[in-house]
Write a protein that binds this DNA or RNA. Structure first.
Length: 559
RNA sequence: UGACCCAUGGUGUAAUUGGCAACACAGCAGAUUUUGGUUCUGUUAUUCUAGGUUCGAGUCCUAGUGGGUCAACCA
């Protein structure tokens, strides 16, 4: 008998399971992801995507992709493409073709007519300022518009003429007749249609009136038969309106459920701020590897599975939350550790000469591509008398816990031999120029009979075979975890000028020369990297995805 | 000074619905290691406050405190 541990459910799953138990919608589950095509998807969208797609999948349901394109002023087809690409890359697929709120403009127009006919909506000629002032404040009720009492016939006629383009933008709106004294501001006769003589990315010039969010979103859900409409907490005040329209129209009762959006340290998701970073040149574009956009994270080398796993581990609830960035990085490392190919690359090269190794000799050594995955196979790497090693891996006199190369001590060269450091030459400026060592010829990796057990192992590259490449090291984009916390302070104050460090003249092992963009590596003892699309045949470019966990540098910091 | 939402280790999320507060990440200590990685072991630390109901409250009730949200012809 297996003692089955009851799986814990998040609050959305609990609601769904209750619905299922009650036989609601005959057990059918349909969710939706409703982006507005006016920007690139970011980590916050990734969270919403995961919740909507994974929750549906878990209960045998599926998910619609619907573009919420009711505002032609800001929307564009360009975003329709990028959004689909990002969702697919994340590993999700929607039902059939993408849907559009604009597909329902005819239906929505009819719905509005129905409300007008039953006295539940009216045309208001007031100016935007007048409407705002009549709305009242959260603590005082609003007052009725002088146009609220028009007859259905008059309203219908006016609405039709709005549709025909008789009136200029902003001169008239249609408002739902709800309750001007409601404590919920959204119920104070919300605007449901406005005049906008603008070209729509899909309907062209067919319409000059467009429905507002509140008159499009819920109805679109209903038209599609969405059972659970999962959105973020900020829409909670819209729910009474969402339900009101469904009730008054007598249409399919989709249910809106709100969850707290996910915030992540050092990441901002404000469209306006992201745009500013791009436009003002703080980053190279929407897909700059420092950006919290899906395209940025993809270029950075974050695996889609890691992002999905991260969203899952962050959980779902209704309280404000800020997830530590190290959880994201832990998920990225966890995934990459298993799939990334290992390779050796020397960032700050210094020359190492093995004085007792025959001049002109090259030895090809076997190296595993991934110790976590034998199936990844092995490759041959060249070894010779002269090598490059990392400058910071040498200290002539070293502190007790320095397990690297130091004078008169042994150290292992990964996949190769144990060497004994015998000397060092300094340049005129005092920097290390050449390090000298001897090797133990019976200590070759895999057939070591030397009996020597050095504490440290270094990565290296054969000087004769090394090729030069460029590496881009990334740090947090901001110097504080929540750059948008204080509205008084410009978030750019916290821009981290050291968030990108370009290192050129990096020495890489020759196997890397055929690497194609997007390939993920672990450069031994350095971290995870990913080949950038800007690589050329002459010069490869690698983006640092995330560093390795490092306990040594922590000890150094402690002093 | 209206309404609504929320409050559990450093962070986030659980707690079989009123029955020994747990899991992950982070931290710390150790073991293993031809990556100071990985893996493994151990460990620190939690129910906003005050009342009430109850044999028993993180959970239910009341009041308070704190945080968030709402007054775009944006979504």
């Amino acid at each position: 008998m297996t003692e089955e541990k009851r799986e814990s459910l998040n609050f959305i799953e609990s609601i769904i399971e209750e619905d299922l138990k009650a036989g609601k919608h005959s057990g059918r589950i349909l969710t939706r992801f409703p982006p507005e095509p006016n920007g690139y998807l970011h980590i916050g969208h990734a969270k919403a995507i995961c919740i909507n797609f994974e929750t549906a999948k878990k209960y045998g349901g599926s998910t619609n992709l619907r573009f919420d394109d009711t505002n032609p002023t800001t929307e564009d087809t360009e975003y329709v493409e990028s959004i689909q690409r990002d969702i697919r890359w994340l590993g999700f697929d929607w039902n059939g073709s993408p849907l559009y709120a604009s597909d329902y403009f005819d239906t929505l127009y009819d719905y509005a007519c129905r409300l007008i006919q039953t006295g539940l909506a009216y045309v208001d000629d007031s100016s935007p300022e007048e409407i705002a002032s009549m709305k009242g404040t959260p603590s005082e009720p609003g007052v009725h518009s002088p146009f609220k009492s028009r007859t259905p016939e008059e309203n219908l006629d006016l609405f039709e003429r709005m549709k025909q383009g008789e009136f200029p933008d902003g001169t008239r709106v249609v408002r739902a007749n709800v309750d001007m004294s409601s404590p919920n501001m959204l119920l104070r006769d919300p605007i449901i249609y406005r005049i906008k003589k603008e070209h729509h990315h899909r309907t062209g010039d067919q319409w000059c009136i467009y429905p507002m969010y509140d008159f499009a979103h819920g109805q679109s859900d209903s038209i599609e038969g969405i059972t659970h409409s999962l959105c973020s907490l900020e829409f909670i005040h819209h729910r009474p309106l969402y339900d009101w329209f469904i009730e008054k129209l007598g249409i399919f009762p989709s249910r809106q459920i709100e969850f707290a959006r996910m915030n992540v340290e050092y990441m901002i998701t404000s469209k306006r701020k992201l745009l500013k970073l791009v436009n003002d040149g703080f980053v190279s574009g929407w897909d700059d590897p420092r950006m919290p956009t899906i395209s940025g994270m993809r270029r950075r080398g974050y695996p889609a599975a890691a992002i999905r796993n991260f969203c899952d581990k962050a959980g779902v609830a209704k309280r404000e939350n800020t997830i530590e960035i190290n959880l994201l990085e832990a998920c990225v490392r966890e995934e990459l550790n298993v799939i990334a190919l290992r390779a050796m690359v020397v960032l700050e090269p210094v020359r190492l000469v093995i004085t007792n190794y025959p001049e002109g000799q090259t030895e090809w050594l076997q190296a595993e591509n991934n110790p976590e995955d034998p199936e990844a196979g092995t490759r041959q790497i060249p070894f010779g008398r002269e090598l490059w090693i990392e400058r910071e891996d040498f200290m002539e006199v070293a502190p007790p816990k320095f397990f690297r190369m130091t004078l008169d001590a042994d150290v292992r060269l990964k996949h190769a031999y144990i060497v004994h450091c015998t000397g060092v030459d300094y340049a005129a400026d005092g920097s290390v120029e050449t390090i000298y060592a001897t090797y133990y010829n019976n200590s070759r990796s895999g057939e070591d009979v030397s009996g020597i057990k050095p504490k440290g192992t270094l990565h290296w590259v054969s000087r004769e075979h090394a090729q030069s490449c460029e590496i881009r090291l990334y740090d947090r984009l901001f110097t504080c975890p929540d750059p948008a916390a204080d509205e008084e302070t410009d978030f750019l104050t916290f821009y981290n000028p050291d968030s990108l460090k370009v290192v050129t003249g990096v020495m890489m092992e020759p196997s890397l020369q055929h690497s194609s963009p997007g390939t993920q590596y672990q450069f031994l003892r350095q971290g995870y990297f990913c080949t950038d699309p800007q690589s050329t045949t002459e010069c490869k470019v690698f983006n640092q995805t995330v560093g390795l966990k490092e306990s040594f540098s922590k000890e150094v910091r402690k002093g």
